[in-house]
Simulated assay, not measured.
Amino acid sequence: MEETIAGAQNTQMAGQIPQQRGASLLETAVRYAEERHWDVVPGTWLETADGTQRCSCGETACPAPGAHPARPDWATQATGSATVARRMWQKQPAASILLPTGRTFEALSVPESAGFLALARMERMELTLGPVTLTPDRRMQFFVLPGASAKVAELVRRLGWSLPSLDLVALGEGAYVAAPPTRFGSRGAVQWARRPTPANRWLPDVEELISPLAYACGRDR
């Protein structure tokens, strides 16, 4: 799996976003805001108690420990200011990095197996791709232009599928993605399957990616 991710990354231009490993959450959040103009908001974080890690939310059965919003008004707290982002993470350096969707981008979330199948097909088709994340809970998120969530059900229907039959979720306004190097409990960290680079600053529209993604999700059922 690591080799697959590394291979995809090596084919891209060297970007300015920090490497997944070694960069602090603070500096990474600042650079997402500064260089990609993404809104960022600090989420929960991991705490160690009795030798085990748990989510700062206090829920023992938290489904995404250390990688979800820390407060109900998280969306209004999100900022595109590098200065404000720095101030936020200075207060809590361990906070996860959350990127609200429905603003500068939306995301199409699919199972990891379908995501890699679609990614290979997209590359053969020489499609323009934006950043793609890979999460420890085995999901991939393909970044696309805003508006995807309003279109995806009809686009899938035209391809002969029904959206409920596919494990394909459009993340739009009111949702978020956890950004690298955010950690999900003991399961590992969010990674880039395709890193943000100067070459993929301009995102594709959902229409460009929906066919290979729907096909891959249909195969993955």
Results as ranks from 00 to 15, higher is better:
residue 30 V to G: 12
residue 76 T to Q: 14
residue 103 R to W: 00
residue 43 G to T: 12
residue 71 R to D: 11
residue 85 A to Q: 12
residue 43 G to Y: 04
residue 31 R to L: 11
residue 62 C to Y: 08
residue 85 A to V: 15
residue 100 P to M: 03
residue 85 A to F: 11
residue 54 R to L: 05
residue 32 Y to F: 15
residue 35 E to L: 15
residue 98 L to N: 05
residue 54 R to T: 03
residue 68 H to S: 06
residue 34 E to D: 04
residue 46 L to S: 07
residue 28 T to Y: 01
residue 36 R to S: 02
residue 29 A to L: 06
residue 53 Q to G: 01
residue 35 E to I: 04
residue 85 A to E: 07
residue 83 T to P: 07
residue 100 P to E: 02
residue 67 A to T: 07
residue 89 W to I: 09
residue 61 A to H: 15
residue 105 F to L: 12
residue 62 C to W: 03
residue 34 E to V: 04
residue 107 A to R: 07
residue 77 Q to R: 14
residue 39 D to C: 11
residue 40 V to I: 13
residue 95 A to D: 07
residue 69 P to I: 02
residue 47 E to S: 04
residue 65 P to M: 04
residue 97 I to Y: 01
residue 68 H to K: 12
residue 83 T to I: 09
residue 40 V to D: 07
residue 52 T to L: 05
residue 59 E to R: 15
residue 84 V to H: 01
residue 34 E to S: 08
residue 46 L to N: 05
residue 52 T to I: 09
residue 108 L to A: 11
residue 77 Q to W: 13
residue 104 T to F: 05
residue 106 E to I: 05
residue 68 H to N: 00
residue 78 A to M: 04
residue 59 E to N: 15
residue 38 W to R: 00
residue 80 G to R: 08
residue 104 T to A: 11
residue 71 R to A: 14
residue 46 L to H: 02
residue 67 A to L: 08
residue 42 P to S: 01
residue 89 W to P: 11
residue 105 F to V: 06
residue 82 A to Y: 08
residue 64 A to S: 13
residue 96 S to A: 11
residue 95 A to E: 09
residue 85 A to H: 14
residue 40 V to Y: 03
residue 103 R to D: 06
residue 73 D to H: 14
residue 92 Q to D: 10
residue 48 T to N: 10
residue 42 P to Q: 08
residue 61 A to R: 15
residue 33 A to D: 02
residue 97 I to P: 12
residue 91 K to L: 14
residue 53 Q to M: 03
residue 68 H to A: 08
residue 73 D to A: 14
residue 79 T to R: 10
residue 43 G to S: 12
residue 104 T to Q: 14
residue 31 R to P: 01
residue 98 L to A: 08
residue 83 T to Y: 09
residue 105 F to P: 09
residue 52 T to P: 00
residue 66 G to R: 03
residue 53 Q to F: 00
residue 55 C to K: 04
residue 56 S to Y: 01
residue 36 R to K: 10
residue 79 T to H: 10
residue 95 A to M: 06
residue 37 H to W: 02
residue 55 C to P: 05
residue 81 S to Q: 05
residue 39 D to M: 12
residue 82 A to C: 05
residue 67 A to P: 04
residue 100 P to R: 05
residue 63 P to S: 00
residue 47 E to I: 12
residue 29 A to S: 06
residue 94 A to P: 10
residue 65 P to S: 02
residue 51 G to A: 04
residue 87 R to V: 11
residue 102 G to K: 01
residue 90 Q to L: 14
residue 101 T to M: 02
residue 30 V to T: 13
residue 93 P to H: 05
residue 54 R to D: 02
residue 88 M to Q: 14
residue 58 G to N: 02
